[in-house]
Amino acid sequence: MIRSEGIPKIMKALKIYGPGDLRYVETPVPEIDEDEVLVKVIGTGICAGDVKIIDGAQMFWGGGVLPKWVSEPVTLGHEFTGRVVAIGDNARKKYGLNLGDMAVAEQIIPCGECPFCMNGEHWMCVQADIYGSKKEIAEGSMAEYIKFYKNSRIYKVPESIPEKNTAMIEPLSCAVHTIERADIKFKDVVVVAGLGPIGLCDLQLAKLKNPRLVIGIDVRENRLNLGKEYGADYVFNPRDCDVVEEIKKLTNGLGCDVYIHCSGHSEGVLQGLKMVRSHGKYVEFSVFMNDTAVDWSIIGDRKELDVIGAHISGIEGYPVAIHMLDKKIIDVDKIITHDFKMEDYKEAFQIAKDGRQSIKVVIRS
Rank of each mutant, 00 (worst) to 15 (best):
D306V: 00
T337E: 03
H311F: 14
I130A: 12
Y234R: 01
S358N: 02
G49E: 02
K9V: 11
M59Q: 07
K9L: 14
V362N: 14
T44L: 03
S173K: 02
G216M: 13
L270P: 01
P19R: 01
P110T: 00
L172S: 10
V192C: 11
L224Y: 02
V157F: 05
A128F: 11
L76F: 10
D257T: 10
G314D: 06
D301S: 12
E180Q: 13
A175S: 15
R239P: 09
N90V: 03
K187P: 05
I109L: 15
Y17I: 06
V126I: 13
I217D: 12
Q58K: 05
V191M: 12
V157K: 01
A206I: 06
R302G: 00
G96L: 05
D333W: 04
C201Y: 08
A293E: 09
R92K: 15
L38Q: 03
D101R: 10
E170A: 12
A182H: 03
A103R: 04
G253I: 10
V41D: 05
L22C: 06
S358T: 02
K327N: 14
P238N: 04
A182T: 00
F288N: 01
Y95P: 01
V29P: 10
I336P: 13
P171K: 07
D257F: 12
H311N: 08
P19I: 01
L226Q: 04
I169K: 06
D242T: 10
P171E: 05
V41L: 08
A310Y: 04
G49T: 07
K248H: 12
Q350R: 09
R364M: 04
I146V: 15
N225Q: 15
F148W: 07
P162K: 00
P211M: 09
V189E: 02
K135N: 11
D344G: 15
I169M: 04
P319M: 11
D33K: 05
G100R: 12
Q204W: 11
E26K: 15
E26T: 14
P162C: 01
Y318G: 10
I53N: 03
R3L: 07
T178K: 04
D301N: 07
E267T: 04
T178Q: 05
R356P: 00
K185W: 08
A48W: 01
G216Y: 12
F288W: 07
F349N: 04
E136N: 14
D257R: 10
K207A: 07
A138G: 15
R302Y: 05
G253Q: 08
T178C: 13
T292C: 10
K68V: 10
Y149A: 09
M275H: 05
G199N: 01
F288M: 02
G140M: 12
V104P: 04
T166S: 11
V219L: 15
D291P: 00
S365A: 13
E136M: 09
E304P: 00
K228M: 15
Y345R: 06
D35E: 12
I7K: 04
K334W: 06
K249L: 11
G216E: 11
V214E: 12
C47N: 05
V84K: 12
L325P: 08
K249I: 03
I184K: 04
A293L: 14
G272Q: 06
H78Q: 10
L200D: 08
P162F: 02
G272C: 09
I146L: 14
D301P: 01
C256Y: 07
D202K: 02
H338V: 08
V29H: 06
G355K: 00
I298S: 11
